[in-house]
C-alpha cells in the first residue's frame, strides 16, 4: 500500500492539488481565491499529463548521435506529445486567467467588493 503511494507519488500529488484547486473554486467566497484555485486545478492537470510521459532515465526526444534506424530508440526517449499538449493547454489556461481577471476587475468596478456573498446581496 505504502509502496503504491511512494512509487506513484506524482499522481497522488496531482490528485491532492486537483482537490485543493477544486475546493477553492467551489468553496471559497473570494473571487480571486477562486481564480487561484482554478490555477492550482489546471496546474494539477499539467502535472498529470507530464507524469504520464515521464520515464526514469529517459532523455530528450532529439536525435543527437548519428542517424539511421539505430539512432531512434523510442524506449529511451521521453514522450514529447504530452509536453506539447500542455504547452497548448498552458496557453489556454493563461487566456482563461486573463479573461477571469478582466471579469473580476469589471465586478470590482461595479460592486466595489470581491466577496461572493456581498455581491449576491447587492445583486438583489
Amino acid at each position: 500500500m505504502f509502496d503504491l503511494i511512494i512509487s506513484k507519488y506524482n499522481y497522488w500529488i496531482y490528485i491532492i492539488l486537483m482537490m485543493i484547486g477544486f475546493y477553492a473554486m467551489i468553496g471559497k467566497k473570494n473571487l480571486v481565491k477562486k481564480i487561484i484555485g482554478m490555477n492550482i486545478f489546471q496546474t494539477a492537470i499539467i502535472l498529470f499529463f507530464i507524469s504520464t510521459a515521464s520515464k526514469k532515465g529517459g532523455t530528450l526526444p532529439i536525435i543527437m548521435h548519428g542517424h539511421g534506424a539505430h539512432a531512434v530508440k523510442a524506449a529511451s526517449y521521453i514522450n514529447p506529445l504530452p509536453h506539447v499538449l500542455m504547452l497548448t493547454a498552458i496557453v489556454v489556461m493563461v487566456s482563461t486567467l486573463g479573461v477571469a481577471l478582466a471579469i473580476v476587475i469589471q465586478i470590482y468596478r461595479r460592486y466595489n467588493t470581491l466577496e461572493e456573498n456581498e455581491i449576491l446581496r447587492l445583486n438583489k
Binding site: 489546471q42 492537470i45 498529470f48 473580476v104 460592486y111
Partner: peptide, 21 residues
Amino acid sequence: APFASFNYLIFGTIGACFYLL
C-alpha cells in the same frame, strides 16, 4: 452580467478541465 459570467467561467473551466483529464 460580469458576476454571472464569472460563475460561468468557473463552471466552464471545471468542465473543460474534466474534459482535458
